[in-house]
């Protein structure tokens, strides 16, 4: 990469993988300009104000230097002040990279570097499902493959949400198949699911998909999800559909404030509400209530209680409560 290295970089965020990638990217850029670049690393907590001048000053034989401060949130106050004071001295020969978790701790340093004109590289944890899918696709693209969205989703379902594992899975798949990864490939390499959740069960059962709901339930129990949150998710599914169905037609955004639910949840509930009658929802809610008591010590076998509830809710939907 021939991008001229900016002398000051702030890597902001608590996703370790992304942060270390960002640092590597900066170092690669510096090395591409001069292979003999001298890289010094310091942990934020150990940084002393006195050594900064030595770390950043050019060496006797010239040549660029990069100082990487990892854990900028732990830099002590006096060292942080010295670090900020050294910013005007940075140039192509002496550049600085600071990683920071982005929390409240040590915020002054992060803000100070940002104000001093640092290039900010975000490395925040990925929390939204959409962003995860995008991350996986980008990962494949880095490796020279162009997978569809379904492939990314299948891989996410199979591997889980840990970014390091996802990266490893992507490179393995591309290395083994030589590109052109499709959903069938993912299914051949990964059987099973890494993570199950009660919401997957609730989503399936609310549209009457008993098979899908039971499968999701088994996965969830198998991967160690406690039955109580699953039971809560079932009740929540019935509640959302009932409230959204009762609210009548309308756009999700209009209904959101009245119902106190986020728009995406309303949209999903609106889709799920088809096929439900009011009396069916009454039966479903009663089944959910029974289930809640059953998983909290009311039943001998909590897994069986959940299965029974899945059948009961599906039956309530099918019969319309008659």
């Amino acid at each position: 990469m021939a991008v001229p290295a900016s002398p000051l970089t702030l890597v902001l965020g608590d996703e370790e993988l992304l942060a270390s990638r960002a640092v590597t990217e900066v170092l690669d850029a510096a090395r591409s300009l001069d292979p003999d670049v001298e890289v010094r690393e310091r942990a934020g907590a150990e940084l002393l104000p006195g050594e900064l001048a030595e770390l950043l000053s050019p060496s006797l034989f010239g040549g660029p230097k990069v100082l990487v401060v990892r854990g900028g949130q732990d830099v002590r106050k006096d060292a942080a002040a010295a670090l900020l004071a050294s910013v005007p001295d940075l140039d192509a020969q002496a550049s600085l990279v600071v990683t920071h978790l982005g929390g409240n701790k040590g915020r002054a340093l992060a803000e100070g570097l940002r104000k001093a004109g640092a290039r900010v590289m975000p490395a925040a944890k990925i929390t939204r499902p959409r962003e995860r899918v995008e991350f996986v696709r980008n990962e494949f693209r880095r490796l020279g493959d162009r997978p569809t969205e379904e492939v990314a989703e299948a891989l996410l379902a199979a591997v889980g949400t840990d970014l390091r594992e996802l990266v490893a899975a992507c490179s393995q798949l591309v290395a083994d198949t030589g590109g052109g990864v499709d959903a069938a490939t993912v299914a051949r390499y990964y059987r099973g699911r890494a993570e199950g959740s009660g919401f997957a069960v609730a989503d399936a059962v609310m549209v009457g998909d008993v098979g899908g709901a039971l499968e999701a339930l088994r996965w969830a129990l198998q991967t160690g999800v406690d039955p109580v949150p699953i039971a809560d998710a079932l009740a929540d599914g019935v509640r959302s559909v009932a409230r959204v169905a009762a609210a009548g037609r309308g756009s999700a955004h209009q209904l959101a404030s009245g119902l106190g639910l986020p728009p995406w949840k309303i949209e999903r509930a609106q889709r799920q509400a088809r096929g439900w009658t009011a009396t069916g929802l009454v039966d479903a809610m009663r089944a959910a209530e029974w289930c809640n008591g059953a998983v909290k010590g009311g039943a001998e076998d909590r897994g069986y209680a959940l299965e029974k509830t899945v059948f009961a809710v599906a039956a309530a939907r099918a019969s319309g409560g008659e």
């Binding site: 809560d232 009932a242 809610m285 209530e289 809640n292 008591g293 909290k296 010590g297 009311g298």
Partner: peptide, 14 residues
């Protein structure tokens, strides 16, 4: 029996 009060009351109301 420790059923979540909200769920119990909702089922009752219905």
């Amino acid at each position: 029996r420790n059923v979540k009060p909200r769920i119990a009351v909702e089922a009752m109301m219905l």
